[in-house]
Design a protein around this nucleic acid. Structure first.
Length: 288
DNA sequence: CTTGCAGCCTGAATGC
DNA sequence: TGCATTCAGGCTGCAA
């Protein structure tokens, strides 16, 4: 599932592969992702050059020369493939593999110059692609209310304390809230709380400064580490039908229900329960 | 204002 | 074996 690190690696892959290329043609195989594709707007980006790629939270922004931008969210299963003139499908990130039969879910295909194709594939169609004016990005409803990026200086102790004041929500809930801090999803939040030794159920009003500082520190550390590993695993843009470029992510708690806690000298089994209808994994001995 | 939750979608895993 | 059900997940928009 693409969270901030996965999306960041897509961004870097796209930067390497499609900058300065021109959009020649766009094939729409599936008209409706999360939102209906506006064909009129798609028409207007034909012949335009791709100037830059940005990321905000889990969103990708592809800036074009005609003052328009393509705003992309990958949802749960969205992924971009690149195809060059060798006709081999290549991955743009580390969170998925290439499989036979993927083409079935190739919903949108951008034909670019230099015989390059950018393919949007999405099994569950939770993602979306919208064309908007670049100048309207900041006011866009998807982006407007997003909290600070986890790496930014704004995500600090003072901000944290101010946000949670008089709130009684669980810490896991707050970390999942994109308006508090943007880019985290269920997997990384589980991991962050394990490393921070905080019980996901803990009410934010009970958090001590030291605990908050741990959360902030590990958030940055865990995300950075994933970007680094994931980025290096696909740096050669291998087609995943071989085994190269596959980075098996290792999680400490996520999806490890009933397995032994990885912390030294702890033999507790990882427990699973729901918070806000999301799977939550933790070690009840290590996380208080 | 804040918080909670249904619904969008498909395929894999599980249940009977 | 095969059919039916459940689960996974981010985000929006509405209800309480």
């Amino acid at each position: 599932m693409p969270e901030l690190p996965e999306v960041e690696v897509v961004k870097r892959s796209l930067e390497k592969n499609i900058i300065n290329l021109i959009i020649k043609k766009v094939i729409i195989n599936t008209n409706k992702l999360r939102y209906k594709i506006e064909k009129k707007k798609i028409k207007k980006i034909i012949t335009k050059k791709i100037l830059s790629i940005k990321r905000r939270s889990k969103y990708l922004i592809i800036n074009l020369e005609n003052k328009k931008s393509i705003l992309v969210h990958l949802g749960m299963t969205g992924k971009f493939f690149i195809m060059n003139n060798d006709n081999k499908t290549k991955k743009t990130s580390f969170y998925y593999e290439l499989n036979q039969g993927d083409e079935k879910h190739n919903h949108i295909i951008f034909h670019l110059s230099k015989n390059t194709k950018l393919i949007y594939n999405d099994v569950r169609k939770f993602g979306f692609i919208k064309i908007i004016l670049t100048k309207d990005l900041l006011e866009n409803s998807h982006l407007k209310l997003l909290g600070p990026e986890p790496f930014s200086k704004k995500f600090n102790l003072i901000y944290f304390k101010k946000y949670i004041i008089r709130k009684k929500r669980k810490i896991k809930d707050i970390l999942m809230d994109q308006n508090f801090v943007s880019g985290l999803g269920n997997i990384y939040v589980n991991e962050i709380l394990f490393f921070s030794k905080i019980n996901p159920k803990k009410s934010v009003e009970k958090l001590k400064s030291g605990e908050i500082l741990r959360i902030i520190k590990f958030t940055k550390k865990i995300l950075l580490n994933s970007i680094r590993k994931g980025g290096s695993s696909i740096k050669d843009f291998n087609d995943g039908l071989g085994k190269k470029g596959v980075f098996q992510q290792e999680f400490k708690v996520y999806s490890r229900e009933g397995k032994k806690c990885h912390r030294k000298n702890c033999s507790e089994l990882i427990k699973k329960f729901n918070i806000s209808n999301r799977s939550t994994f933790y070690c009840q001995r290590c996380q208080k």
